[in-house]
């Protein structure tokens, strides 16, 4: 029998061996879809612990990257039992690194943490053209659009993208994130929110839906 509390804590502690051993044993018992969904929820709760430990200073960026990988591995073990069902989606985020910038580490951390928090994330990748953001936003109508960047030139690309989205009548909250992002940059870009850390970004998004 899978102890969900222990699983949550093990993921929060980033104890990879323990998490994977528990989940493999669990998968071998041919769990029902409902049971597998409970295990997913326990892993997601573990990610919330990771977020808290990041905010308290115990964990830093490297730990968030590792946590994202661990969560992906964990979900992969559970996938066969999940069938076509999925956990409740609390909102959709359209995400990408803006035009001119090729960095994706921060974006990917945010992606795994927001997926763990129950968001469906559509990731457009890096160096995303303004038009690509607009077309995809019109197609999937996300509640939130997340733009990421590391270079200072990303701020201008974010501004261009926000302007085009508004012009196209896209109705979504916009959050920007990354190294050069500040309160002033957020105002300049015309975004609704900003963050320089993924854990905080997820919390902001939870407040936006």
């Amino acid at each position: 029998m899978l102890d969900l509390k222990i699983l949550t804590q093990a993921l929060g502690d980033l104890e990879e061996d323990q998490v994977m051993e528990m989940l493999k044993e669990f998968a071998d018992t041919s769990p029902s879809e409902a049971e597998a969904l409970e295990a997913v929820a326990a892993c997601q709760a573990g990610m919330a612990i990771v977020g808290e430990l990041f905010e308290s200073g115990e964990y830093f960026v490297g730990d968030l990257i590792f946590a994202g990988e661990l969560l992906t591995e964990a979900i992969n073990v559970l996938k066969p039992a999940l069938g076509g069902g999925a956990s409740v989606v609390i909102g959709t985020i359209l995400l990408g690194t803006v035009h001119g910038d090729l960095h994706d580490i921060g974006k990917n951390i945010f992606k795994s943490m927001s997926e763990a928090a129950g968001f469906e994330v559509v990731d457009l990748g890096i160096d995303v053209e303004v038009d690509t953001f607009v077309k995809k936003a019109q197609e999937i109508k996300p509640q939130i659009i997340g733009m990421s960047g590391v270079l200072t030139l990303a701020i201008d690309s974010m501004k261009d993208t926000v302007e085009a989205l508004k012009e196209a009548g896209v109705d979504a909250k916009i959050i920007i994130g990354g190294n050069p992002v500040t309160k002033e940059a957020c105002a300049f870009v015309g975004a609704d929110a900003f963050t320089t850390n993924a854990a905080e970004g997820v919390k902001i998004c939870q407040g936006l839906v």
């Binding site: 590792f66 990988e69 580490i105």
Partner: peptide, 11 residues
């Protein structure tokens, strides 16, 4: 690289 070395730090 950043991602791989972050994993190595733990593994």
């Amino acid at each position: 690289g950043i991602k791989e070395v972050s994993i190595d730090l733990r593994k």
